[in-house]
Design a protein around this nucleic acid. Structure first.
Length: 237
DNA sequence: GATTGATCATAC
DNA sequence: GTATGATCAATC
């Protein structure tokens, strides 16, 4: 992706204010300001919306490891919503550290670190809407509540336990209440070193941790339910 | 219609 | 190939 990029925000408040200034704008407007072309659809540009918002907010380069806003310790996630305010997709969090997973407790897991502080930026995501016509919604700076963290930690223990015992090949996306493990690769022939139940090294398809729709839906629903107590506010536009 | 398993683009 | 950003599309 070519084009310009905003300077990085220096404080969380500045980041949030900048994200709020994006609310109500269309992706075509943001793209024009950054000198970027809008793709006809996302089939061949699946990360385009996320990268566009990264640039608009001055996040670090998209391909580098670590938080999007390194100095602030904040991770940026765009969240595609349907007309009812429900996420259209699950949310990728991080790759599964196949071999190290058995040595990691929830406290030092990549899952906890990635989700410690997240700036959620909702974006209209229905496929029938032309990409450029989609609106950015009101942002939400989030950290897991005690209840949310308890669910995430329990999922980590269960999923990491299965993988740590060499069960990666038998692990399906049905396991986990808030988090699930699914393939994460460029194509089906990609392999990564893992361990089977006997501790023998095997080559397995890389996997990632994803947040279920029900979990992210609850996050956005709560955040817009409170302000909506004043007369009939609805999902962000 | 929702979910799972598969896949796409880009930077280094 | 690895890591970033995710959505697609077959199937349940």
């Amino acid at each position: 992706m070519r084009g310009a990029s905003a300077p990085p925000p220096e404080t969380e408040g500045e980041l949030l204010a900048r994200a709020q200034s994006l609310a109500g704008r269309t992706l075509a407007e943001l793209a024009a300001e950054l000198g970027l072309a809008v793709p006809p659809d996302l089939r061949r540009a699946k990360g385009w919306v996320g990268q566009l918002v990264e640039r608009a907010l001055g996040a670090c380069a998209a391909s580098r490891p670590g938080p999007d806003f390194a100095a602030l310790g904040v991770e940026l996630k765009t969240l595609p919503l349907d007309r009812h305010g429900r996420p259209c997709e699950t949310t990728f969090v991080c790759n599964v550290p196949m071999r190290a997973v058995s040595e990691l407790s929830w406290g030092d897991s990549p899952l906890r670190h990635k989700l410690a502080r997240v700036l959620w930026v909702p974006v209209e995501g229905e496929r029938q809407l032309p990409v450029g016509a989609r609106h950015v919604g009101a942002p939400l700076l989030w950290s897991p509540s005690a209840e949310e963290e308890a669910v995430l930690a329990s999922d980590w223990e269960e999923l990491a336990g299965i993988i740590g015992r060499g069960g990666i090949e038998s692990l399906t996306a049905r396991v986990g209440r808030a988090v699930q493990v699914r393939p994460k690769a460029a194509h089906g022939r990609v392999r990564r070193r893992s361990l089977d139940a006997e501790g023998t090294s095997i080559d397995a398809l890389p996997r990632g941790f994803y947040l279920r729709v029900s979990f992210t839906e609850a996050i956005v629903r709560r955040s817009y339910a409170a302000p909506a107590q004043r007369r009939g506010d609805r999902a962000p536009r």
